[in-house]
Amino acid sequence: MYSQFFGNYLLNEKLLTSEELLYALQRLKSKQAKLGALAVHFGYMTAEQVEEIYIAQTHEDKMFGDIALERNYLTKEQIQELISFQKPTYLTLGEVLIEEGLLTAEEFESALEKYKSTYSINDIDFKNEYKADHDSLIYQFYDSINPTENIFTMHYISLLITNIIRFIGKDFTPQEPVIYEEFNSETGSRQNIIGARHAFTAVDASREAFIQFARRYSGLEMTELDEYTKASVGDFLNLHNGLFAVNMSNEQSLELTLEAPEFLTNYHYRLHKSIFCIPIQFSFGIINFLFVDYES
């Protein structure tokens, strides 16, 4: 996950333009193998078992390797072996940037070292990308949201980044969060979380980025803003919020339920509460994730 934030660092340091980063992210997608694909390639798992784990990940927030271990599909040693073959995204990103002449090897190395020292990341963490370290990085990146006072929001954002990686792809970089009092949404889906704590959640994008996001999530060919694209984005929101509800029940004993997602165009949000906007830059455009904790 560090690599996605590292992309943002390269932009802020003006080492890349956003066009160059987007191009590199697009190339990145075709260069990366998922753990499941590697497990099949090595003959450790069948395609059916991999599919079963992908489905299990839509029911609980767990890593592929952890579920494979629980179900005795992989041993700890096999997981380590597969991870060692799965080159970390930041290295693949570096390769692309160097191959394309966007950065020299020295510039990449120096930027990486500066990034690691700025965010106090050591080498081992950077390779293994532990969950605890994800959270600490996310808290640092989103410090303008005031993480210690907005734990509920931070749990939401942390899971959101994980779910984007799991269900959409790794080729994105988060942009600085923005706090709005009002928000104009061009094309979007929204869903309310109710129960022990109330929150508002939404996805907003340009029409084109909305369609591309829907296409990524569903894996289906989608070119128009129709019932299928609307359902796909609504389904992603519903899945992410559902997993958030399960985590909140398990970790915080908060029982949350969800209302049905709703599609909206050219909608003006004014919720009498600050709206946290989490913009994510994908290779196909920007998707804004909106979150309001009514009880903060």
Binding site: I55, T58, H59, V246, E255, L256, T257, L258
Partner: peptide, 26 residues
């Protein structure tokens, strides 16, 4: 049922639903 609807699910079964299956359906 979708993820995160466990409490609703119990109500549905109590209301007389015969069974449940989890989405995505297999």
């Amino acid at each position: 049922s979708s993820v995160g609807t466990q409490s609703h699910l119990k109500e549905a079964l109590k209301a007389g639903a015969y069974d449940f299956i989890q989405k995505p359906l297999q």
